[in-house]
Design a protein around this nucleic acid. Structure first.
Lengths: 216, 216
DNA sequence: ACCTGAACACCGTTCAAGT
DNA sequence: ACCTGAACACCGTTCAAGT
């Protein structure tokens, strides 16, 4: 711990993320990271006291890539889209790291900053206290859950599976028991995550809109 | 693999889940599970060919606990609440297993059944195809993301941390830079997950409502 | 102070041998 | 056919020794 001279924290972070991106989570270990950096395994303990801290290193490397423009005078909905979209894009750029991000994001500085930016955007409609909390939880859950679903929902492509194979997997289900799943499996083929993310977030924000009642 | 006589699949599932519930994910291994069952490590390979399949065993044990009533003639919103709520409750009853569920839920039969039930409920308003897909993705993301957030969001209690300690952690942040985070950290103290889940899902369903436009 | 190799108690998995 | 111990190539982490 403390000040180390041999590598910067950023160097170690980058090496850990590269390892995960390239070879998957299971390949990340004290020893493989040390080897990637060209040093002995014990050197890593100067940057991560436990195996878990190795994962924090990766999470911070990913989240640090999330950048959103100044939401200055944007409409509150547009402002939420900017921050939420930036988070989502950063996460989904590193599919092998997603499990870690969902598990260990809480301490990352970028995540704290993103939370504040999201809250500021949501608050522009006059929300505060409990109602702001609910809106924040809902939007956060949507962003993180959506990123994860792309990899692990029933509709997700399995490892090494083609889109055609996925649809076949659903066609093999009994049509009388799972008519709706089969329906959306077809719809999923001519859809894309970007569109679905935006449409889903739009719906959530419409429901959260403080002026929802006054429109009627 | 194949038919095994020594233990039923359910026995092995239950033992694996008990291990995770009691000692955490890191304690689940071929060897510890075998020991819990009172047999040799190699016997486990008759039920799980790889370490990953061990995790699938746990996920299926958790998801099998999700039960929802017949949604028969309920309002579509109420029907979605029944299924989504059942999933959420089952997942959050096993905090140590949540990471696995998010990662490996896709193959569980209960998850497939829940997906179909969710889709049926969402479809009652006349949704189908792409619009049904978007609604399904949004609700699924919300449920899974919300369950995870309880453990890993910036507002989540850290391991062994009291609620008071969490609020103190936020009070320690610079108030001029994170005013909103500090605001909702206070709000979170007099709130509870159940209320937030319901309110968030209500908002999402309001935004997804097919009659949203016609109300104005 | 920082770095590191040897050693220890684990892991998943293969293999060959038991019944 | 099912079960299993021994063995192998890994892990994270402690410790003691280097600079």
């Amino acid at each position: 711990m403390g000040r180390s001279a041999k590598f910067s924290r950023e160097q170690v972070q980058a090496a850990a993320l590269a390892l995960v991106d390239e070879h998957g989570l299971s390949h990340l270990s004290m020893r493989t990271l040390a080897a990637a950096l060209g040093t002995g395994a014990m050197t890593i303990y100067n940057y991560a006291a436990h195996r878990e801290d190795l994962e924090v290193l990766v999470v911070e490397a990913v989240m640090a890539e999330a950048k959103w423009p100044d939401t200055g005078k944007a409409d509150w909905r547009a402002a939420v889209h900017m921050v939420a979209g930036a988070l989502w894009r950063a996460i989904r750029a590193h599919p092998h790291a997603i499990a870690l991000i969902l598990t260990r994001r809480s301490r990352s500085p970028t995540v704290i900053d993103a939370a504040e930016a999201l809250l500021e955007a949501l608050s522009r409609g006059g929300r505060s206290g409990h109602s702001l909390l609910v809106a924040f939880r809902a939007v956060s859950a949507f962003v993180m859950g959506f990123a994860q679903a792309e990899l692990a929902s029933p509709l997700a492509l399995q490892a090494g599976e083609s889109a055609q194979l996925t649809i076949n997997r659903f066609r093999a289900l009994p049509a009388d028991r799972y008519p709706f799943l089969i329906d959306i499996a077809h719809a999923a083929m001519s859809s894309d995550p970007q569109t679905e993310f935006r449409a889903g977030l739009d719906a959530l924000l419409a429901g959260l809109a403080p002026d929802w009642g006054s429109r009627c």
